[in-house]
Design a protein around this nucleic acid. Structure first.
Lengths: 241, 241
DNA sequence: ACGCCCGCCGATGTATACATTGCGATGTAT
DNA sequence: ATACATCGCAATGTATACATCGGCGGGCGT
């Protein structure tokens, strides 16, 4: 088996298959055969089935008619739609958080996180650390989602974010020279601040609208990247169309 | 095995377990043991695992830490949230349908369906058939969701609707004498008409708002039913709180 | 009495043999 | 040549034996 992660064969196999799918090695529509995979991974069919089952729960595989699994196909349009959907669900989560009210200490903590992101760009000449930004940005999105009082909404949002191209930091820029990147992050941070403020002031509709618009940054980055042949994002590897 | 539905042991077991869960025989939090279930259903552990895996995909079971499955717990608040979420997703589906435009023949067909629902209440004295209404109402909701151009949004909406208490006809009234029921259906039909009109006129925001408000009928019916001890809805059997 | 360790037991994890099904290839009859 | 029946293979479905892990309790040492 090629990966060591996880404690059981099933988990390792799931990890392995997940990697192959998001890297595009297993394109959408590919039928997965238990026997072939079992031989390839040098395990028996049982953990392979278990692994495929887990990936089906994640939405990366679909159960085929007559049994078996197929790698789910995602078109470019699906990526756009998934980002839009993430915006809608984050918007709902924030609206509910605003309507219910959020504890001051959590708000304070999130404001600290925003400041920390700012600090990463106050480097005056030194190139900003985009890896760090990506991580902190994900953390921010997780934190504001946690403010939502509805576990149902939280879990459905989590589910959509688990799609590799729908996560909040899927399409952050890679090339630090980019002027567009700098602007994009300035705008994003302004929206981050506004979202927290809206929740704080219990302005539900505003929080919802901001979250939706905020998700469109990802869409914009994606569309720009698609035009630039040097910026092929690994998160797009599993796109069929 | 107690049920004949389905062609394989795994599908039968899944059907069987699903029934028991939604009927409340297996309350939220119940740990499911492979061996016990296998003996009970007189099949081996393999199809039992397969069945549990499918139910986890549906969201009725959760994988427990250290392996195994637990019946997912739903509180009364979760039911409210799921209805709200259904409204949000239907709203998004309708907004996208309105923005993209929907073919005339589909619109025409849905208008016919609305008229058919009306006809069921033009009985002048004869009691309306609530079973029929429930079915036609579900059909209407399926049909308008089908207008949504995004398969991602469609499938997530479908997923939420599969929760037994979040389906569009989960809380239609049962007692035909109810005056509130009559009014509720008059309002619902007006909203149905308005939603189709909004899509037709490409009024995305209006379609979205209508869908959200429309879902609140279910919430209203639920809250009213909860107050009435004679109206215990079977869809509520699996609620823990 | 307290605590540690060891071994059992019950649970899931895994391998594997066998059953079954669905589909395609091959053949024959018309 | 075409239609249809049949055979066979390859795939998943199923049963079951064995492996492994983790928790719990009892026994022993201090």
């Amino acid at each position: 088996m090629s990966e060591l992660r996880g404690s059981t064969h099933a988990k390792r196999a799931a990890y392995d298959l997940r990697q192959r799918i998001v890297k595009g090695e297993l394109p959408g529509g590919t039928r997965l055969y238990e026997v072939a995979l079992a031989e390839e991974l040098e395990i028996s069919r049982t953990p392979v089935r278990e692994a495929m089952s887990r990936l089906a729960e994640e939405g990366l595989l679909e159960r085929a008619r007559g049994g078996g699994f197929v790698v789910r196909s995602f078109t470019y349009g699906d990526v756009i739609d998934a980002i839009e959907l993430r915006g809608v669900l984050e918007g709902t989560a924030l609206r509910l958080a605003a309507e219910a009210g959020a504890p001051d200490d959590k708000i304070k903590q999130i404001k600290g996180l925003i400041a920390k992101i700012d600090a990463g760009f106050d480097t005056d000449g030194a190139p900003p650390n985009l890896e760090q930004y990506s991580g902190l940005n994900s953390e921010f999105h997780d934190d504001i989602a946690a403010l939502c009082p509805s576990s149902i909404v939280r879990s459905e949002l989590e589910r959509v974010k688990s799609l590799p191209f729908a996560s909040p930091s899927a399409f952050v820029f890679r090339r630090r020279e980019s002027k567009a990147m700098e602007q994009s992050i300035i705008i994003a941070q302004a929206q981050h601040r506004a979202m927290v403020e809206a929740i704080e002031r219990r302005e539900g509709a505003r929080a919802e609208a901001l979250a939706r618009e905020h998700a469109r940054i990802a869409r914009q980055n994606l569309e720009q990247k698609t035009l630039d042949p040097e910026e092929l994002d690994p998160a797009l590897a599993l796109i069929v169309d």
